[in-house]
Structure formats: C-alpha cells, structure tokens
C-alpha cells in the first residue's frame, strides 16, 4: 500500500524525523522535570538538523545523568562517574574537536561532588554544552538536600535547610564562562532557544535548568517545586533562535529587541520585557544575579554571553582534524628526530 504524502513523518533539513533523535524509554518518575528537558534537547537537535553521529553525550551519576540514554540513540554516550563528567568531557573534546559535546548533570553531581571539576571545566572554556538539571535534592538516594537547595527550603520530611545555596550561574560568570543561562523545565519555548544557542556557541555553555523532583521536592515548602517556580519565574526577555540556514530578514525594533550574532551566523533574538538588560555585560550579569538572590525571584533567560570567546582546543592550538584519527606519520616523528635526541644525550 503506497504511503500517502501526508502520512509521512515530517523530516528536518537533513531528512531525519524527530523520532530519529530519540533515545530509550525514560525510567524516571512520571512528571519528572528532567524528561521535559530531554524533550527539548531532542527538539533542539532536530530543529537544527545536526547529524547525530557528530554528537557525544556525557554525564556523571544521578537521575539527571541517566537522561543521555533517553535522547539521541544514534550518538555515542558515556555515563561516567559521580561528579567527574567535566574531566571526561574535556578528554573527549581534546581527542576530537569536530564533535558537539553535550553534558547532562545534576545539582549534586555539579555543586557538591563535582564542584572542583565544574570550576576547572569553565576556567578552561572546554567546548561543551553543560546542562544542570537542578532540583535541589538527591533523588536517587531519596531526598537529601543538595548544595543548590535554598536556605530555609524544607525537605519532604519537613527539615529546613540551614545552609546557603550555591548559585552555579553566578559562580560560572565569576569563572569567566562565556555562555550562562537559566531556565525552567516548565518553559519549553525558552529552553529550546537557549539550547540551540548553546549548541552553536564556542566554549562552555552553561544552562542551569530548574527541574522539579516530583517525588522528593515538589511540596509547598520547597523552593524548587513546579508551583514555586511558576509563581516566582521572571523572564529576562523573550528569546528566539534564528539558525544561519534560515536567514530571512525580519525587521525588528532595536529599541525593544537585541540581536546577538553567533560565530556561525546564527542569531539569538532577545525581546525585552520589563528590564533593559544587556546580556553582553559581565558586570551587569553579576549585579542582576546578586539582586535576584536577595529578592528570591527565579530569573530565567540568557544571563551572559560573549560570542567571541576562544575555546580550549583553540587555546591549545590543536590541529583541526581529530587527534583521535591522525595517521601514523603525523604522530610519530621521523627517525632523524630520534637520532638527533640520542646525539644530544651522548
């Protein structure tokens, strides 16, 4: 029976369907914020028409770190050890600079056991899309506070968290991160645009996504619940992504819209809402985060971007082709070189 044109699934610019970007069935709890993020990751890759074999997925340990298995099953994936995904991702990036690397992590994986590696990943500007699925709680070990839990937020058992939260976005800006965004799993439109921008950006792109844990941290006294986030979310701007291959000239008002050109010719288009905010100012970003820390608002959007940053492989002046597959003659110096060294040692 011939397939009718209308029954054919839609394909993207490289002829793949949305399903081609999916992974295994999720084993997380129903309604988990992480699954919503996974959907937007799939969507972003599909929309941009990125070839799955050019992507690697890396993660550490935790609920969030399981999710790379739930998207892009045509890409290589690596679920490594707790808190150490940044080092693994750094190795991958060095071995093959032609890959697009996405790392998925959680607040425990990043802000507690992995904070050292997180810090140095950013300091080096390793090319990696770094997504924190932030729920303020250890899910896999059943509900302990993490280091991003807000002071005064209560656990399911009613215990109040006495310690201040680590704000990964603030820390990242401090460390010189060149793409810093915050989002909410319940805001797919914003998240997908931020992901696309991150895929194109060179260097470490941090997206800290509040992603409620429906089992252990979705109660009325939690500051990482769906309800709390919906009530307190304040959008910095309406954000849209225009890929380089869809260059249609659309007029926009420079007074109300800011256009950030990325290195491959794509654009992030930011429509101003209540504030006059420039995400290209590092100082402004620091001030903003300090303000919202005091006000308790959940501010989302593109907090900071430096589209001109040079990533780690460029800093190291590594050859353009993958180190992983360089031919013998490029990685073994000639006999004369060894003779020369030996002569010096005589």
């Amino acid at each position: 029976m011939p397939t009718l044109e209308k029954d054919k699934p839609k394909t993207n610019r490289i002829g793949l369907t949305l399903a081609d970007y999916k992974g295994a069935e999720s084993t997380l709890c129903n309604g988990c914020g992480h699954d919503a993020i996974t959907s937007q990751i799939i969507r972003a890759f599909y929309d941009l028409g990125i070839e799955p074999h050019r992507v690697t997925k890396v993660s550490g340990i935790g609920c969030s770190s399981k999710t790379p298995n739930y998207f892009l099953n045509r890409s290589h994936g690596f679920n490594s050890v707790h808190g150490r995904m940044p080092s693994v991702a750094t190795g991958v990036a060095l071995a093959n600079r032609t890959l697009l690397n996405i790392g998925v992590t959680g607040d425990g994986d990043t802000a507690s056991i992995g904070i050292g590696q997180f810090v140095h990943l950013i300091r080096r500007n390793v090319p990696l899309v770094y997504v924190i699925e932030n729920n303020g709680v250890y899910g896999l070990t059943k509900g302990q506070f993490s280091a991003t839990a807000d002071r005064g937020s209560k656990s399911k058992a009613g215990v109040s968290n006495p310690l201040p939260a680590i704000d990964c976005c603030q820390l990242a800006i401090e460390l010189g991160c060149s793409y810093v965004a915050r989002s909410f799993a319940g805001d797919p439109k914003q998240l997908v645009a931020l992901l696309k921008g991150a895929f194109v950006h060179r260097g470490t792109s941090l997206i800290d996504v509040v992603s409620p844990c429906v089992t252990f941290n979705n109660h009325p006294d939690s500051t990482k619940s769906y309800d709390y986030a919906k009530e307190h979310e304040e959008l910095l701007h309406e954000i849209g992504f225009v890929p380089y291959f869809e260059q249609v000239t659309v007029d926009y008002d420079e007074g109300t819209t800011q256009d950030v050109r990325l290195h491959d010719g794509s654009h992030l288009r930011l429509k101003k809402l209540h504030r006059d905010y420039d995400p290209m100012s590092r100082q402004g970003a620091m001030r903003l985060l300090e303000e919202t820390r005091e006000s308790g608002e959940l501010l989302t959007g593109l907090i900071y971007i430096d589209p001109t940053s040079a990533d780690f492989t460029s800093l190291l002046n590594v050859v353009d082709e993958p180190l992983a597959t360089l031919p013998l003659e490029k990685v073994r110096p000639p006999k004369e070189a060894l003779n020369e060294i030996m002569e010096e040692l005589r």
């Binding site: 690697t56 080092s87 190795g91 991958v92 071995a95």
Partner: peptide
Amino acid sequence: GMVIGAGWAGARA
C-alpha cells in the same frame, strides 16, 4: 578522567 574521556574518543592518552 581526561585520559579516559580521550581514550574513549580514540586518542592515545
């Protein structure tokens, strides 16, 4: 960790 990541991706690390 970096060596393992690089080795996985095919480098001699």
